[in-house]
Amino acid sequence: MNKFRMSDYVILAALLLIGFVCLVPILNAIAISLSDKTAAAMGEVVFLPKKFNTAAYDEIVKEGRFFRAFGVSIRRVLLGVSIGVGLSVMMAYPLSKSPRVFRMRNVYMWLMVFTMLFNGGLIPTYLVVKNLGLINTIWSLVLPGAVSVYNTIILMNFNKGIPASLEESALIDGANPLQILGAIYIPLAKASIATIALFTMVHHWNEFFLGKIYINTLDQQPLQTYIQGLSVTLTTQQMANMTPEEIIRKLAVSNVTFNSAKAIVSMVPVIIVYPFLQRFFVTGLVMGAVKE
């Protein structure tokens, strides 16, 4: 077992190759973003920038829209995480009680699970958001998905593991459930709460579709929606009426370096929280998936 055999080298090489393949698109995009426009469009860039320059990044800094969208995304993440995590923490505590203590518990639980299994679909949900006057407001990005049933269940399962004796003495002393949540449950569940906060953060940062359907004013679009809009350099109607040769020509003049630079910059916040995420997501995933 201890000596390093031929098959060990094969396995090592295979795993290094797999790891490398996971980085290829990212390394390629970094190289393109730091290359000369024409060189990038001509396909001369693989992993090393050609005619190194930071023109694409300078362009981003000069362009106000990118940072405005970046700002919208930051606001969205702050609102989305505080509302989403706040609600999950609030709901997970009563839901962790047995139906004998909290008679309505199973009614709420079934309602919540039902919303995970079935949904009204795109247009009916759109109509509700529209009738509430949320179109073109940041609330349309935050409120429709505010309650994550999945996260609430993860937290609830954690709460169930906290011994009831801890809160019983507090209850006898006359503390109310809200005080118990703040003084006993939240401090004990800190790590779980941090986990769902990080996941909620990444979700709100990466999500682009709500911005696409609910936000029509360009200034209020979140970052991913803005970038998604850019990458479509040709409208679908235009494309349907073009020959492949025309499309090749059109795409060649599209701004590959600029778009790649935007993709890289918008990745930065995720990369920053990634080390923290990595500390938590193993527990998070196992908590959620293999309960019992």
């Binding site: 609030m90 909290f102 709420y108 919540m112 079935f118 429709p144």
Partner: peptide
């Protein structure tokens, strides 16, 4: 008394689910 608290803690979240998940389910009549 505690149950009143529990229900109060559920009410905002369940309200959101009713508005943004349950109401659209009736919207499928279109």
């Amino acid at each position: 008394k505690n149950e009143i608290y529990y229900n109060a803690m559920m009410v905002i979240g369940v309200g959101f689910l009713l508005v943004f998940s349950i109401v659209p389910m009736f919207g499928v009549i279109i």
